[in-house]
Computed example of a mutant assay.
Amino acid sequence: MDSMSWFKRQSKGITTPTNEKKDTPTGLWKKTPAGHIVHIKELRNNCYVSPNDGYHFTIGSKEYFEILFDDNHFEELDANMESGDPLGFVDNKPYTKRIKESQAKTGLKDAVRSAHGKMNGLDIVVACMDFDFIGGSMGSVVGEKIARAIDFALAHRYPLLIISRSGGARMMEAGFSLMQMAKTSAKLALLSEAKVPYISLMTDPTTGGVSASFAMLGDFNIAEPNALIGFAGPRVIRETIGKDLPKDFQTAEFLLEHGFLDFIVDRRRLKEKLTLLLKMLK
């Protein structure tokens, strides 16, 4: 037998050299940090959570809307709102160009989408951040869309869910970004006065100005397992205080233990848990 026959597939006169075989298409499999490999179809059916070890893969508004809204049916709010360049920010990559590139890459207008629809038959407003759009950073559009989502929830007395995943305020809008912290917090105070429920779901990561404003102001503050939640990063804190940080510092589990969260919820039970919570509040 020719030694090259070991590297060929021969069947009924068909010969396929090894170098002609097609590779498995990329993107069909995902690998968890623990090394478990899961097919993307299985992940979709499991709310993007690994069935082997419970690892929560990061997802965006598209996937969360699919998980939460009945039959993925919803009406998006302020869908076409997009950022300008209020400061005329210029560096090696002008801000307006960065916005357009992010829009083309992600198919999103900015780092948050808001919508209303039914969740197990209950009316709800959901605002969900997208980390893929400039790190989920909060600029004027994010603050305004969240403020308008709050207004909509207040006008219709629908409960509000905000899903946070953000690196913090958007530096390219400087003070305009910081103003969104006060604006969203003031709007949420109106929601609280009207006794309309607000649930804040923090996912990995929730940091900076987002964690310092609306993400921590929920009537119920909840999180996904192992989510990183904090203001400054662990390295900055360690260097500032000059001490080693506790084990699992800034994880959802650490925050729950120290009273900053009401509960941690597995994404596979998120819709069920939120429905039960809202029915109890009714």
Rank of each mutant, 00 (worst) to 15 (best):
E239Y: 13
L245C: 04
K243Y: 06
A227N: 05
P234Q: 06
E239K: 14
F214K: 00
R238F: 03
G208Y: 04
L217W: 01
V210Y: 02
V236W: 04
I237R: 04
K243C: 07
L228G: 05
F214Y: 10
P225F: 09
V236S: 12
N226P: 02
G233C: 03
I237Q: 07
V210L: 02
N221S: 14
N221I: 15
G209N: 01
I229Y: 07
G230C: 08
G242R: 08
R235F: 12
E224F: 11
E239L: 14
G242S: 10
S213F: 00
L245V: 05
A212M: 15
A212G: 09
I241A: 10
P225M: 13
G209Q: 00
F214V: 09
S213R: 01
F220V: 14
V236H: 09
P246T: 09
S213I: 03
D219H: 12
K243S: 07
M216L: 14
A232H: 12
M216Y: 14
M216A: 15
A232P: 02
A215Y: 04
D244P: 01
N221T: 14
A212D: 12
V236M: 13
P246C: 08
K243E: 14
E224K: 01
A223K: 10
R238L: 05
A212K: 08
D244F: 00
G230D: 06
F220M: 15
N221D: 15
F214C: 04
F220K: 14
A227G: 08
P225V: 11
A223N: 12
G209V: 01
I229W: 04
T240H: 14
G208Q: 03
G218I: 08
A223I: 10
L245W: 02
G218L: 11
R235D: 13
I237T: 11
T240R: 13
G230M: 05
A212T: 07
I237Y: 05
G209W: 00
L245G: 02
G218T: 10
E224C: 08
P234H: 06
S211L: 09
I222E: 10
R235E: 15
F214R: 00
S213E: 00
A223R: 10
R238T: 06
G242Q: 11
G208V: 03
G233H: 05
N226E: 14
N221M: 12
F231N: 09
G208N: 03
K243D: 05
A232Y: 11
I237E: 12
E224R: 02
I229P: 02
M216C: 15
D219T: 03
T240P: 07
G218H: 10
P234C: 05
I237C: 09
D219L: 06
G209F: 00
F231V: 14
I229Q: 05
L228F: 12
G230H: 01
V236F: 10
